[in-house]
Design a protein around this nucleic acid. Structure first.
Lengths: 189, 189, 189, 189
DNA sequence: CTCTAAGCGAGACGGTACGTCAGGTCTTGCT
DNA sequence: AGCAAGACCTGACGTACCGTCTCGCTTAGAG
């Protein structure tokens, strides 16, 4: 019957979005520019995506974002583990392309809150889960009070990383240390 | 020697920006729209502001933002005071106009980081200062460890409020309570 | 492969130009005005014409101008024939719309000499040809000296008509008569 | 009582107009440009001239135009005299600045017919008068028929020069010769 | 010899139009 | 059908001038 959707075109558009975001920032990205860069007709873009934000969303979901793709090592030292994660997601902000992606995420959140919320959730969730699990484990070995609310802590970590991203510059090592210390002291056994 | 700048025009533009932000959101604001709404010529806008973001900045600086203009009561109870502030700045996110302003601030930060950083600093500073002072007082009365880093705590509060704003919805009372408890436990004497 | 140029839009623009010229004069014609009147986007105009003058040129070439579309009767009487033509092209200057068109032609010539020259040539040519032929015939029947330069005469006629147009008012019958008499006496057998 | 009009400003504006016309053409001249070039405020221009055309008019009247300032020698040879004038006014069209002035005159005529007519008359009049007188003298010495209408002839000369100016290029020597011969043969005794 | 009514430069102001860019819809012909 | 190409209408962009309007300063005559 009909011709199936061209995967080639789809990937080309997403790749063009990723490139454009890094190169010029989300605000400067245009549908026309994407179409030209991807060698795809505007119609094809409009046929499959409802908005620029939607393309960004798909592009980010299929790609990777800084802080999200860090492999998260688990050692015996809770504080060291959390410091490692916060540090890793923070140093990403030293790389221009990661800053661009983070900013794009923020921009789309401010513009299209619905989608923004979905994306933020999507990216925050695995981190929150990982932190919750790590703390749960810490409770088992007696490093953390058993009545501590792991979700609240996890959110504090994510909020801290998010705030640093909004600022567009990495946290100092000292700041990372002090922040982790503060939060852990709040739940220490 | 020429005619001096019209304060009337300036105020009209800033007011139009504030109205437009609340009504349609930052992305939908147009220089043409502002000019029409303010009954000012486009040229007058371009003469005095380099960008839409700059107008927003000036409008916000001369106006007020949610969480920034809350009068901050000081009682004997540190935890209650901080809970009061976080709660107040959070409930602002229940009002659509405040959400719009917060989102505009985020949008401009993502688009024009330079200006965004300046604005964020400008709005965060008084809060950070107040929290630092409040904690300093708490140290004096022995509620807080004297070696606690007040700046790190203050930043955690601001990050939490900022993250809630990015999400666009207020924190629950329970969440406010738990967050403040967590952070204070980290510095309790 | 793309959508072909819209003939409808093209004709609407040319018609709008003709109407606008007659109504307000060439200087008052605006691309924006044409676009609105023709219910066409500005972009469409800029896509196909490099300048206002070019639109005028095309409009005139596809339409008609006074003195150019007079059917030119040929009788046995050379003097009467030439008088008839000069008179006809002159009386056009009594009609406001013709005056407007003539003025537009002059304006475009003064502004864009290249195009103006082309248009003037385009409109003068058939007249010059007709006059040259008519005189050639008159040579055959012995009304005119065989060594007369028909081109020079024809140019005098055109110059006279053009000068009247520049002045914006018709020649009196008496002036027409005297002018034709003068020129013919110069080449009479 | 008050301060009298500044002659310095007036001359500066007229000079700026003359320079601008030659350099860019009448259409490209702007009041703002004149003001800047003449180091005069816009207000001063608007105080004393109703329109751009009026400035041009005054500038031309106080300056000189090609064909108008030729000193007109009178010899015994009528044909040579007329040929000399037509040739002189034609060669002016070889100089770019003269072409620019002539075109400006035509442009203003097409735009502001009232003023244009006045200017054309102003410049044509002395020429017509001179030709009429020269022919009158020729009648006296018997070179020209006494019943010839000198005005019609004079107009033919002016129309020829005007048409050449509209074309923007000089007449060839041969064309000058042929034209003068034709016109004189029409009135020869 | 002061007063004062204009002239003057500078340039801000509300406008209109410029020529460009992108958005989103559509048509055409190929696959 | 899907797709590349690109014309179309729409509307905003940032710029250039328009003609009007203060400003603060000079610069005459009239008192």
């Amino acid at each position: 019957m009909p011709r199936p959707r061209s995967e080639r075109a789809r990937q080309a558009v997403l790749a063009a979005m990723r490139r454009a975001i890094s190169a010029e920032g989300y605000a400067a990205v245009t549908i026309e520019g994407l179409a030209a860069e991807a060698e795809v007709s505007k119609q094809t873009i409009y046929r499959w995506w409802p908005s620029k934000a939607a393309i960004l969303g798909e592009a980010l979901l299929e790609g990777s974002i800084p802080g999200g793709d860090v492999s998260l090592p688990v050692t015996d030292d809770l504080e060291a583990d959390l410091r490692a994660w916060l540090s890793a997601s923070s140093v990403g902000l030293g790389k221009p392309e990661s800053v661009a992606l983070a900013r794009a995420l923020i921009a789309v959140t401010a513009t299209d809150p619905e989608l923004g919320a979905a994306l933020n959730k999507r990216f925050a969730s695995p981190i929150v889960e990982w932190i919750v699990e790590r703390i749960s484990h810490a409770k088992d070995v007696g490093d953390v009070r058993t009545d501590a609310d792991a979700g609240v802590i996890a959110d504090q970590f994510v909020a801290t990383a998010s705030y640093a991203a909004l600022q567009g510059r990495p946290l100092s090592d000292e700041r990372v240390r002090a922040t982790v210390e503060l939060l852990l002291r709040g739940i220490a056994a």
